[in-house]
Nucleic acid binder design. Structure first.
Lengths: 212, 212
DNA sequence: GAACTGTAAACTGTCGACAGTTAACAACTT
DNA sequence: AAGTTGTTAACTGTCGACAGTTTACAGTTC
């Protein structure tokens, strides 16, 4: 009988979570440098675990390292944003196609639920991108491809980093939800190619929103 | 006038290269554990930089970490190999389609050169996968998508890790090169969809070779 | 002889200090 | 006043040592 309780998480592991939140919420702004001694003292730990956390986030693309000059939060150029979305499109289109092959009825229920919550959330003024992510997450679950899912998660994180400094218009959110419904229809019909196409158009639109 | 000379590379950075080679060549076998004190002494460095290198390779999937139990070289199950190739297919099919859009005449020359070297290399008995990689590299260059290229590099590394303990038959190499020539034809014709299809079939075959 | 318990060795996680590099500022020169 | 050089402060890179955890083994019990 295994009661998985006081899982001792290393300081480095905890620090990864803390730092990630600081970066994603914009508390550490884009372009800002991460001072090792300063942050380690502020967190009450030594530099070792903090360094590990910094390196970890750098490997996720949430920080960029410069030799002898430490880490800073990246501010992407439009060209880099386009490259990021080429990667995202490759991954999520493939996932959409796989989801069309592998989805169960339960997967469809979850995806529809995410869309409904997004529609109601639009009016109640919840964080829109959280609701958007919930749908994409449900779709990834349906695709049943753990490695693609992990890479999608990493890319989406970097997109959130972009959004930290951008306001997205209401009409755009509306259009995204419409895309999601189209996607569900295609995945329901097991039309993989069409699902991939819709996803591609969807992500092109999202990218252009972020580039304005 | 910039003369890029004694670029001081950190110990951690050098160690990443050294360790990566040890893992990819199979000098550290699959399943084997990486002892921090042992390896650091063997390399003549302290545990700090080695730890950073280990974490780095872990983020690339070349090592797996277990809390309080260090790092070992992963030995993938057939299921994990399939998942890895789903990711690879997503990335390389997208790259093939992009290459069909963006390739220049120079790109085509380089890809053809890679195929020719592969054919001659087959008889002279060079490392086959090196020649295979050269083609895929040329294709990635033609796609001009730096982030996809980086991810492809990481996935291919993990495939090399698999190959470290597998012998590939001659006929399989032959079939791969044929696929490559088909790919060049499609990319030459700017037929993105067909290029993606060929790549998909190609990778399915490679995967099945590795799973035997 | 098999299963359990307690102890010791080996290893990972963390810390504080020192060394080397970079960047900013002040003083000096033209 | 602008440019250059020298100095200093801040920060990253590296190291060795200590603390806590895991694992292996010996001893004990049934």
């Amino acid at each position: 009988m295994s009661v998985d309780l006081p899982v001792h998480v290393s300081l480095a592991g905890q620090t990864v979570s803390v730092l990630r939140e600081l970066v994603l919420t914009g508390e550490i702004a884009a372009g800002e440098r991460v001072n090792e001694v300063g942050v380690s003292q502020r967190l009450g730990i030594s530099r070792g675990p903090l360094r590990e956390a910094i390196r970890h986030l750098a490997s996720e693309g949430l920080l960029v390292l410069t030799p002898n000059r430490g880490a800073r939060v990246p501010q992407l150029t439009p060209e880099e944003v386009r490259a990021l979305f080429e990667l995202r499109t490759a991954l999520e289109c493939a996932a959409a196609a796989l989801a069309a092959q592998r989805r169960t009825e339960e997967d469809l229920v979850k995806m529809r639920g995410a869309v409904i919550r997004a529609r109601t959330g639009l009016t109640t003024g919840e964080f829109p991108y959280r609701l958007d992510l919930a749908f994409h997450q449900a779709l990834m679950d349906a695709a049943r491809s753990p490695l693609i899912a992990e890479q999608v998660r990493l890319v989406q994180q970097r997109v959130i980093l972009l959004r930290a400094s951008i306001e997205v218009a209401f009409s755009h959110e509306q259009a995204s939800i419409d895309d999601h419904e189209e996607l569900i229809t295609a995945i329901d019909a097991r039309a993989g190619d069409r699902a991939a196409e819709i996803m591609s158009r969807h992500l092109d639109r999202v990218r252009d929103q972020l580039l304005t």
